[in-house]
Simulated assay, not measured.
Amino acid sequence: MRIACLHTADSHIALFDATARAVSPTLELTHEVRADLLAAAEQAGGLTEAIAMQTRASLLALRSGSHAVLLTCSTLGPAVDDALAKQCAPVPVVRTDAALAQRALAHGGKVVVLCTASTTLEPTASLFIEAAKGTAAEVDVRLISGAWDLFKEGALPAYFSAIAAAADAAYADGADVIALAQASMTGAAERVTRGAIPLTSPQSGLAAAMAAAALAAEALEPK
Rank of each mutant, 00 (worst) to 15 (best):
T8F: 00
A172T: 15
A85F: 08
L29V: 10
T116R: 03
G77K: 03
G77L: 13
A209P: 01
A14P: 00
H67G: 14
T19L: 01
H31F: 09
D10A: 01
I129K: 09
G108E: 01
F128C: 03
E218P: 10
I129E: 08
P198H: 14
I51H: 08
E138I: 14
S201Y: 09
D97V: 15
D97F: 12
D97L: 13
L38C: 00
V139Y: 07
L62K: 04
D149S: 10
V69W: 02
A106C: 07
A50T: 15
S66Q: 05
C88W: 04
A175W: 06
F16A: 00
C88F: 06
I197Y: 00
L105C: 10
A166F: 04
A50S: 15
G205F: 09
A207M: 12
E42A: 06
Q54Y: 12
L84T: 13
A18Q: 07
S74M: 11
Q182P: 01
D176E: 13
T124Q: 02
G154N: 01
A158S: 07
I13G: 03
L59V: 09
S145Q: 02
W148Q: 01
Q87S: 08
A57D: 11
A137L: 12
L180I: 12
I197Q: 02
D173V: 14
L206R: 01
A136H: 15
A196W: 09
A125V: 10
E218C: 15
E49M: 10
A196H: 10
A158V: 04
L59Y: 08
A211Y: 10
G174D: 05
L70I: 07
A217Y: 14
R194W: 05
F16K: 01
S74A: 13
E32N: 08
G134Y: 09
A208F: 09
C5T: 10
L206K: 03
P90Q: 09
A50W: 14
G46F: 07
Q182H: 09
L76V: 15
A179P: 03
A217E: 15
M1S: 12
A158N: 05
A188H: 06
A181W: 04
D176G: 14
V69G: 08
G146R: 00
Q54A: 13
A216K: 01
P198Y: 14
H12Q: 04
V177K: 02
L15H: 00
I144Q: 02
T8V: 03
L206C: 02
V93Y: 07
H7D: 00
S24P: 07
D149L: 04
T96Q: 02
Q43R: 12
D97M: 13
L37M: 12
A18W: 08
L47A: 06
D10P: 00
I13Y: 05
A68C: 05
V80N: 02
A40M: 06
L38V: 07
R191H: 12
E190Q: 06
A172G: 13
A211H: 14
L47F: 05
P198E: 11
T55L: 04
P25S: 14
L62H: 06
A175I: 11
Y159S: 03
